[in-house]
Amino acid sequence: MAAVLKIFCALLLLSAAPARAAERWQELPEPAPLPQAAKTGKAPVNGIELYYAIYGSGPPVLLIHGGLGYSEVWGAQVADLSRDHTVIVADSRGHGRSTRNAEPYSYDLMSSDYLALLDYLKIEKTALVGWSDGGIIGLDIAIHHPERLTKLFAQAANSKVDGVIPTVMEDKIFAAYIEKAGEVYNKISPTPTEYDAFVTQISNMWASQPNWSDNDLKKITTPTAIVLGDHDEAISRKHTDYLAKTIPGAKLMILENTSHFAMLQDPEGYNKTVREFIDQ
């Protein structure tokens, strides 16, 4: 699966016109560098080692990256939020510096990883900012363990497989992200030669999950923001509107002139939007 993705990405990127992108949503900037962490480590959770880093002090906020991603994508957000928050980032199981095992991926399992990390760090409740798979993990925790969350900022999340835009794999920016994710994996993963196996394992989850009912979403009592870039390549606006209407009291927030990678394309605007929600 990963080998096919690499070939597809290479062909797609070679076919791209050399002209510079006209809009910021057509670009994939490098993440801002992370500041110096107050603490880093690997938490033993659910049979794996989950890499984490902690920054700043104040009310806690947990940032969860998307599929194939890594904690460094949050560089600009960590630098801003750590001025007055305890910011926790981690690499999800099998991603970045974290290990994985043979257990099949599921959003329930990944949520359990993060809840176990919070227990390990002795954090009872936190605000959660989740992007893509991170937003889905946030929804899972809000449905099943609302007592652990103060706020949920879920960007580019879906509650059903059909919330994903079918043409996402034809998008050049998304292809560039997949290529970059593979490069980073090779550099920092404890199993750098197992990218294909990792992608195959997590792809099995994506094929059928998430799959929550309206009633599941209506159980959510955590104050929730449903967030989407107005040019998101992966998640449809129709599905995003559905989430905002179905989750009780949810706030719909649309990020202008950004795509699935809004935190990289407009970090200042993204940080402002996060703060407007989690600090109110």
Score class of each variant (00 low, 15 high):
residue 104 P to V: 05
residue 268 E to L: 15
residue 249 G to R: 05
residue 256 E to M: 11
residue 28 L to Y: 09
residue 30 E to S: 13
residue 98 S to Q: 03
residue 212 W to H: 10
residue 80 D to T: 09
residue 55 Y to V: 12
residue 267 P to E: 08
residue 22 A to L: 14
residue 169 M to A: 13
residue 201 Q to C: 08
residue 105 Y to E: 09
residue 204 N to I: 10
residue 65 H to T: 10
residue 105 Y to C: 10
residue 197 A to F: 01
residue 187 K to E: 15
residue 272 K to P: 03
residue 8 F to A: 15
residue 118 L to T: 04
residue 14 L to H: 04
residue 250 A to R: 07
residue 234 A to G: 05
residue 242 Y to V: 13
residue 3 A to Q: 12
residue 237 R to F: 10
residue 99 T to W: 05
residue 18 P to H: 07
residue 42 K to M: 13
residue 149 L to E: 02
residue 203 S to E: 10
residue 214 D to N: 11
residue 278 I to M: 07
residue 98 S to H: 03
residue 166 P to S: 11
residue 37 A to V: 13
residue 50 L to A: 08
residue 28 L to R: 02
residue 6 K to A: 15
residue 6 K to E: 15
residue 218 K to E: 08
residue 19 A to W: 07
residue 25 W to V: 12
residue 99 T to S: 15
residue 102 A to V: 09
residue 65 H to Q: 14
residue 86 T to S: 08
residue 40 T to Y: 01
residue 75 G to C: 11
residue 159 S to E: 00
residue 165 I to W: 00
residue 150 T to Q: 11
residue 195 Y to P: 04
residue 162 D to F: 14
residue 108 D to C: 01
residue 248 P to C: 09
residue 261 F to L: 15
residue 72 E to W: 05
residue 90 A to R: 00
residue 39 K to V: 14
residue 180 K to F: 09
residue 171 D to T: 07
residue 34 L to I: 10
residue 132 S to R: 00
residue 93 R to I: 12
residue 125 K to I: 09
residue 92 S to Q: 12
residue 201 Q to L: 13
residue 269 G to T: 05
residue 147 E to L: 04
residue 173 I to P: 04
residue 174 F to P: 03
residue 116 A to S: 15
residue 158 N to D: 08
residue 24 R to I: 12
residue 223 P to C: 09
residue 162 D to T: 11
residue 87 V to S: 05
residue 6 K to P: 00
residue 5 L to M: 12
residue 11 L to V: 12
residue 143 I to Q: 01
residue 257 N to A: 13
residue 173 I to C: 04
residue 103 E to W: 01
residue 50 L to Q: 05
residue 210 P to L: 07
residue 93 R to M: 11
residue 79 A to Y: 01
residue 17 A to P: 06
residue 74 W to S: 11
residue 117 L to K: 01
residue 75 G to Y: 07
residue 152 L to G: 08
residue 158 N to F: 09
residue 5 L to C: 01
residue 37 A to E: 12
residue 6 K to W: 02
residue 236 S to H: 04
residue 248 P to V: 09
residue 96 G to Q: 03
residue 34 L to N: 03
residue 235 I to R: 00
residue 217 L to W: 02
residue 6 K to C: 06
residue 39 K to M: 15
residue 204 N to L: 15
residue 85 H to R: 14
residue 88 I to D: 02
residue 166 P to M: 09
residue 24 R to D: 02
residue 15 S to N: 12
residue 52 Y to S: 08
residue 268 E to R: 10
residue 56 G to P: 08
residue 160 K to W: 02
residue 150 T to S: 14
residue 233 E to Y: 03
residue 171 D to I: 13
residue 113 D to H: 04
residue 120 Y to E: 12
residue 1 M to I: 13
residue 16 A to L: 13
residue 118 L to N: 03
residue 24 R to Y: 01
residue 277 F to P: 10
residue 180 K to L: 13
residue 31 P to Y: 04
residue 135 G to R: 04
residue 164 V to E: 07
residue 7 I to R: 06
residue 36 Q to C: 08
residue 190 P to H: 02
residue 198 F to I: 09
residue 280 Q to S: 14
residue 183 E to W: 02
residue 8 F to M: 14
residue 115 L to P: 05
residue 109 L to Y: 00
residue 198 F to W: 06
residue 127 A to T: 12
residue 73 V to L: 13
residue 173 I to N: 02
residue 76 A to Q: 07
residue 120 Y to I: 07
residue 110 M to A: 06
residue 220 I to E: 04
residue 157 A to F: 05
residue 240 T to M: 08
residue 98 S to W: 04
residue 35 P to S: 08
residue 18 P to L: 13
residue 246 T to K: 04
